[in-house]
Computed example of a mutant assay.
Amino acid sequence: MNEFLNKLKMLYKGFDYNKYWSSLESLYDPSISKFKRLLCRNYVSRVNRRFCASIAYNPNSRDFNFKSWPILGHGLNGIVIAAGAIIGKDCYISHQVTIGRSRGGAPTLGDNVYIGPGAKIFGDITIGNNVRIGANCVVFQDIPDNATVVLQKPRIIIKDANYEYYTANPDEAKRS
């Protein structure tokens, strides 16, 4: 009965940060047996699907891409990290962040980097140490140490008075 209750608790327990990262890390450990590696790969895949995340790993590589486990302020919700991306120590990654490959390369993040919600980082670029990347920024060029990246102010586009907006059902959106 006690074993059943422990399994039941695990079903309703939230995200187990330590278990996830140690499982991901063990995929790169050559001393781990094939069976344990299979279990870890299965666990990581299930957690990624549950939280709509994709923390990719390269099974042919023996290098773990994280210098230390990143701080995930909102759990794994929507985080996508491409295989080959290198993440430095003490990085804070918010929800809905994409760190992706472009033109054959993946980004390298320095130590103590903050990435705001919805930020996108693409390509074979280097993000320096102590960098802050604001919410919804799209970064595709190298960023020096101790920099802050923010969006410029929004553009306002004014349309003609007769401009017709596309709608799925034009009868529902008649102008008066």
Rank of each mutant, 00 (worst) to 15 (best):
S33R: 07
C91W: 06
G78N: 07
W69S: 14
I99P: 11
A85H: 05
I99L: 13
S54T: 02
F15D: 02
A82P: 00
E25L: 10
Y43W: 09
A82L: 00
S61Q: 10
S22I: 14
P30A: 05
P70Q: 01
V113N: 07
W69A: 14
Y57N: 12
S22A: 02
R103W: 08
A83E: 15
V113C: 09
S31K: 14
D90A: 08
R37F: 01
V113E: 08
S33M: 10
S23P: 07
A82N: 11
P70F: 02
F35N: 10
V80M: 04
K19P: 02
Y17E: 15
F15G: 01
E25D: 07
S31D: 13
Y17N: 13
I55T: 07
A83T: 03
D16M: 07
I81D: 11
H95P: 03
I99Y: 08
C40K: 13
A85R: 06
N77L: 07
C52Y: 06
L27R: 01
Y28R: 08
A85S: 15
V97C: 15
V47A: 00
M10Q: 14
Y92E: 10
Y43H: 13
R62V: 05
S22K: 15
S68M: 11
F51R: 05
L109Q: 07
G78Q: 04
Y28E: 05
N48M: 08
A82E: 12
H95K: 11
S26W: 07
I55G: 03
A83G: 14
G73H: 13
A83F: 03
V97L: 14
N65M: 07
Y12A: 01
W21K: 11
C91E: 06
S23Q: 09
V113D: 09
N65D: 09
I32E: 14
S45V: 01
I87A: 06
L27N: 03
G75W: 01
R46P: 00
R101A: 12
L76C: 06
D111K: 08
L72F: 13
K36G: 00
G105D: 02
G105A: 05
L76W: 08
H95Q: 15
F66P: 04
S45N: 14
Y57T: 10
L109R: 09
A53K: 03
D29N: 15
F64V: 02
G84T: 08
V47F: 00
L109Y: 02
D16L: 05
N60P: 00
L76R: 09
G14T: 02
P59A: 09
P70H: 05
G84Y: 03
F51M: 08
S94T: 12
C40E: 15
G14K: 07
M10K: 15
N65T: 05
I71Q: 11
D90H: 15
W69C: 12
D16V: 05
L24N: 11
L38T: 14
R49A: 14
I71D: 06
N42Q: 14
D16I: 03
V113R: 07
L24K: 05
